[in-house]
């Protein structure tokens, strides 16, 4: 029997929804995680330490003390590479915290609304309607701006509207799951409601919800950058990409790299999350 030759293409022609792209996206994402988790330990960075002599050095320039400023320096002579690495940690920590909060709240309220129906469902659904119609970033701006600056406030500000997408998805899935035979059977033999939800509903909801989590992570990272850009996010002692972009706005004419680099880093993180998310959505079932 003749061997079937499979022609492998050198160039991944099918750009989207192929495992190759998803794998590449996952690898890029893993690199970001690695940089965010390990990078700050390897590259110390002090947001307060400024050096007038090393201001606005271009990419690859050498500092006064002979060290290399690989990605240049900003308007206060602070290292750009250090800011990017520490900013990666901030973005990832905020993104993960926001998604974890939203997922927990959204999954709980969504499955409850879908399973219990009746007034619980009406109340939760109306709350979802209100928050869906309202621009989430607006709410985040108001909350982050009126409360004291800090990591916790930013996470809360972004979560207030963020859980809604999870709740809506979980509710929709639960509505169709609660009439399935195994759920009826569990209810008939007297399994308590919380146990039914945890053991017989949530395992089927978790897949699509995970796919949604990637999109929400990307959204949270972008929103955090937006808040910090407006000066409403984190205090200036914490490096955030949005803040670095805002700082660089004053030096666009002379030092474009200050604003350009963090934006590229952000785009890379969000694109790879998005590609992975698209793939997961196809694999793990419906979203939207």
């Amino acid at each position: 029997m003749s061997a079937i030759t499979v022609r492998t293409r050198l160039w991944p022609v099918r750009l989207r929804s192929t495992p190759a792209v998803a794998t590449a996206a996952a690898v890029v994402l893993a690199c970001y995680l690695l940089v965010g988790l390990v990078g700050p330990l390897l590259i110390p960075y002090d947001p307060v330490a400024t050096s007038v002599a090393d201001r606005l050095l271009p990419i690859g320039a050498v500092r006064q003390d002979g060290t290399l400023a690989l990605l240049g320096t900003d308007g206060a002579g602070r290292d750009m590479l250090g800011q990017l690495v520490h900013g990666a940690r901030t973005s990832i920590v905020i993104g993960v915290s926001v998604v974890a909060t939203c997922l927990a709240v959204g999954l709980a309220l969504g499955t409850l609304a879908g399973y219990l129906a009746g007034w619980t469902d009406v109340a939760i659904s109306r709350l979802i309607d209100v928050l869906m119609a309202f621009p989430g970033i607006l709410l985040a701006i108001v909350i982050a701006g009126l409360f004291d600056q800090g990591m916790l406030v930013v996470v809360l500000a972004l979560s207030v509207a963020g859980w809604v997408a999870f709740a809506r998805l979980a509710r929709g899935l639960t509505l169709s799951l609660r009439v399935r035979p195994w759920v009826d059977a569990a209810r008939l033999i007297g399994v308590p409601t919380p146990v039914v939800i945890v053991r017989h509903i949530i395992p089927f909801v978790i897949g699509p919800v995970t796919a949604l989590a990637t999109t929400e992570f990307a959204g949270a990272v972008l929103s955090e950058a937006g808040l910090s850009f407006l000066g409403l996010g984190l205090p200036s002692s914490t490096v955030s990409w949005g803040q670095v972009i805002a700082n660089g706005k004053d030096y666009l004419d002379t030092a474009w790299w200050i604003s350009a680099l963090p934006g590229l880093a952000l785009t890379g993180l969000v694109v790879s999350t998005g590609l992975l998310g698209d793939h997961l959505t196809q694999r793990l079932g419906s979203s939207r």
């Binding site: 750009l15 950058a225 972009i245 666009l252 350009a260 963090p262 934006g263 785009t267 999350t273």
Partner: peptide
């Protein structure tokens, strides 16, 4: 389709305020 979809994903992934600043950098400055 691949071209348009890829482009759309990239555009959607960029922080809007950063797109604005890059437009200022290129088109205005």
């Amino acid at each position: 389709d691949r071209g348009i979809s890829g482009l759309a994903l990239t555009l959607y992934s960029m922080p809007p305020f950063w797109i604005g600043i890059m437009l200022i950098l290129v088109m205005a400055l």
